[in-house]
Amino acid sequence: MTLVTLEQAFQPALRDGYAVAGLVTLGWEDMRAYVAAAEAEGVPVILQAGPSCRAHTPLPILGKMFTHLAEEASVPVVAHLDHGYEADEARLAIDSGFTSVMYDGSRKPLTQNIDETAAIVEMAHAAGVSCEGEIGFVGYSGGEQSAGTDPDEAAQFARDTGVDAMAISVGNVHLQQDVGDGLDVARIRAIEAVTDVPLVIHGGSGVPLAQRQMLSRQSRVCKFNIGTELRMAFGTALRAAVTSDPDRFDRVQIMKDTHDPLVAATRSVLQGFKPAQR
């Protein structure tokens, strides 16, 4: 059994200079490939159930899937609720075997975000579960615009909520298909100067590889969320599988052909978060 909390996954990452990938899952095929890739690379992995995943599959089922994969895995696995918006949702995730929950109050006024996040932290910690919060707002490519994290507000948020990890807005964007210009490292350093809470970068697909590596090894960024990059790899593999034989209709056989390409793409992502060679 290698199911661990977010806090347990982060302690060695901080000590040894690496980050852990929070991989956004949509179904059995991708989560299984993610664990296989993590095992091949010998690194921990965070399986994340975001809103679109939860709309497709109920949390109790996702909890069993994550737990089963963790029980069979040779590396630490975190079962994480990504972008939870309601206390009841966090409670259900905890009851379903998740070891980490994120409460996203980033669209709300600071005081309300702090109060609501603190309540989720208290509930999670009482159950032995980690909690991630978000301060500042990470926007969406082609959608809502970001609001950068204010370091002073980040310090207050970390202090008053007791979160185990803090998602920040420093130039990162959700659902970005192309690599962007990079994150605002000066803002990251300013946040690090006022709090020692592990930091999280959502929208990691748009962060250049060199910057992923640098921050993994030389900052308190312990987690990069990766979704779009691997969704695109899965979509490419699925499209090839469907078109390779127009007479094939068995979805199990079609889905099977996505496994190896997705494992390879995931391994490439995971390699970018490893510690420097010694």
Rank of each mutant, 00 (worst) to 15 (best):
116 E>F: 02
110 L>W: 05
116 E>G: 04
120 I>V: 15
124 A>Q: 06
114 I>C: 04
110 L>C: 10
112 Q>L: 12
121 V>N: 01
102 M>P: 03
110 L>Y: 03
104 D>S: 08
106 S>K: 07
101 V>C: 00
110 L>G: 08
126 A>W: 02
119 A>M: 02
121 V>L: 03
110 L>N: 07
103 Y>R: 03
110 L>A: 11
118 A>L: 09
110 L>F: 09
122 E>K: 15
107 R>G: 15
117 T>M: 06
101 V>I: 12
111 T>I: 08
118 A>S: 14
106 S>H: 09
101 V>M: 02
121 V>G: 03
116 E>I: 03
99 T>C: 12
114 I>F: 03
108 K>I: 00
98 F>R: 02
99 T>W: 13
117 T>G: 05
108 K>R: 14
109 P>C: 11
98 F>I: 04
127 A>N: 13
112 Q>A: 11
98 F>E: 01
121 V>R: 00
102 M>K: 01
121 V>Y: 06
106 S>R: 07
107 R>T: 15
100 S>N: 12
124 A>L: 06
116 E>Y: 05
99 T>V: 10
98 F>L: 05
123 M>P: 04
104 D>P: 04
115 D>E: 15
115 D>A: 09
112 Q>S: 08
112 Q>H: 03
117 T>A: 05
102 M>I: 07
118 A>F: 11
103 Y>A: 00
119 A>W: 00
107 R>V: 14
122 E>V: 06
112 Q>N: 00
105 G>E: 06
110 L>R: 08
124 A>E: 06
109 P>V: 02
102 M>H: 02
118 A>R: 15
122 E>L: 04
110 L>S: 09
127 A>C: 12
109 P>S: 11
121 V>A: 03
118 A>T: 10
101 V>G: 01
107 R>D: 14
99 T>H: 13
117 T>C: 07
108 K>P: 00
102 M>A: 06
102 M>D: 04
101 V>K: 01
115 D>G: 02
112 Q>D: 13
107 R>I: 10
100 S>H: 12
104 D>G: 07
121 V>K: 02
124 A>V: 01
121 V>W: 03
108 K>F: 08
121 V>C: 05
119 A>I: 00
119 A>T: 02
99 T>Y: 14
120 I>P: 06
109 P>T: 03
108 K>M: 13
118 A>Y: 09
125 H>A: 10
102 M>F: 08
105 G>A: 09
123 M>T: 05
103 Y>V: 01
112 Q>E: 15
119 A>V: 00
111 T>S: 13
119 A>R: 12
110 L>Q: 11
99 T>Q: 13
124 A>Y: 08
124 A>T: 04
116 E>V: 00
126 A>D: 12
